[in-house]
Every structure is written in structure tokens, then in C-alpha cells.
Simulated scan of single mutants.
Amino acid sequence: MDNLEQLTIFGNDLNVDKTIKKVRHFFEVDYPVAKRRAHRDVTGLSSPVISGMPKGTPVGNATEERLINRVYCRQVVAATPKTIDECSKWSRKILRWLYLNGEDDTYCINNIPYSERWYYKQLKPTAFIEFAEIYPVEELLVFEKVQ
């Protein structure tokens, strides 16, 4: 990562490796889960039943939490392709191929006019950093603590 080894954004030192790891986790774990959960049917939710019998009061509201989680997942699913579209040309292509179209690194390498080494050393890490900079739903950039 020639020019990615040390990045400073608004006076804060970006931890490139941890940011890339966080974005990779987002695409490999969080995004697929959000896609599955975003489309679950919420019509099965029911109103509370009032009875005269005493019972323990649950902490929190499970129905409300499920709805909030569903809305959050829908935000993630809607924001991800839009964020990819805001990236630079090769970052956009790489992220689309890998995470929206389900292709692999070999496909990407075969469809770019750059070497495999350049893909792994520069293009793919840059795509992850660009995505992290733009993504609006949660913070994906990881900064070093300034001492």
C-alpha cells in the first residue's frame, strides 16, 4: 500500500490496516446479514394482550427493537450500493464485482488493466478506504489515538 501506509484525515492518523479489516468484515458479515434481515416480513408482529393476571415486566420493548433493527438493516442495504457508486472508477468496479455481483478476486484481476500485485497492493485497499470514507450509516474509518 504505497500511498496508503500513512493517511491523515482532518488531522487524525488513519489506521489503514484496521479500517480495511473493518470494511472487509462489513462486506463479508454485516452486509449479507442486513440483506437477509431487511426483507423479513414484519406483519407477524402482534399487539400486546391485556389480561388481569399479574406477570413480570420485561425490560425494554422486544417488538420495538426488532422494528428498529429491521429499519437499520434496510438503511444498510439501501446505502451500500449508493456508497459504492460514489467511489472512484476502479474502486466502484471492484466493490460492485465483489460484493454486489458475487464475483471473486480472480474475476476482478482478469477484468482490470493492471497487474495482480497492483490489484492487491493498491486497488483493492484503496476501494475499501474510499468506501469507509463515504459510507453514511456508521463509522468505518479507524483512527489512531493521538498522544
Rank of each mutant, 00 (worst) to 15 (best):
I109F: 00
N111W: 01
N15M: 01
Q147T: 10
F128T: 12
P48A: 11
D30Q: 06
V59N: 12
V76R: 08
C108E: 05
V29A: 09
V71P: 04
E103T: 10
G56V: 01
T126S: 15
D105C: 09
E144R: 04
R24D: 10
G44Y: 02
P48Y: 12
T63R: 08
E28A: 02
M1V: 10
A34S: 07
E64C: 00
S88T: 07
C87Q: 01
P125M: 01
W97N: 02
T43A: 14
E103M: 14
S91A: 07
K35S: 05
L45H: 05
G52W: 09
V146P: 10
L98E: 04
S46W: 06
K18N: 04
I9D: 00
W118T: 14
K35H: 00
T43P: 03
V77I: 11
R37L: 14
C87Y: 04
I68R: 07
A79W: 05
V71Y: 11
A132F: 01
E139Y: 13
V76T: 09
E139F: 13
V71H: 11
P48I: 09
Q122C: 08
N15P: 04
T43N: 11
S88D: 13
L123A: 15
R117Q: 11
N111A: 04
I50L: 10
K21Y: 11
A62I: 10
V33Y: 13
E139L: 08
V142D: 04
V49Q: 12
K145I: 14
L100T: 13
I9W: 01
Y114Q: 15
T57A: 09
L67S: 00
P125G: 00
T57R: 14
